[in-house]
Amino acid sequence: MAYFHSRQALSSHLESLTTTARLAHQRQTNVDLARIAIATERFRSATGAYPQQQAMLTPTYIDAIPQDNITGKPLQHRLHGERFIIYSLGWNATDDGGVPDKRSEPGDWGWRYPDDHVDQWKFENSS
């Protein structure tokens, strides 16, 4: 019985390791997304329009574009009129169309405007 409880306790501790790793990746992603958003806004201020590709931001507006900490690939970046969305694929490493993750549901880590445009994005992507 003692062995069983010890294994349960260790299991709980190990899960906390996962949580620590996930939160660290998520917070770094938030910072990376913020930097890209800043560069994107600077691009818009200078040219009057948002960039079609993240590569257009370097080197004038950002020295190097951060990669997705989860996939090692470029972060997702899409435009929609006067707005844009950038996001990481999140802990599940799956493109959920920019739908943010919640405690009970996996999703993406990203920026979106106060209005809920994510469903619209998802709809447009699927059509």
Binding site: H13, L14, L17, T20, A24, R27, Q28
Partner: peptide, 16 residues
């Protein structure tokens, strides 16, 4: 935030 993640996890693992 990822720079010291590995030693941090080692720390937590050691405590566990």
């Amino acid at each position: 935030a990822l720079r010291n993640l590995k030693p941090e996890l080692r720390h937590r693992r050691a405590l566990s």
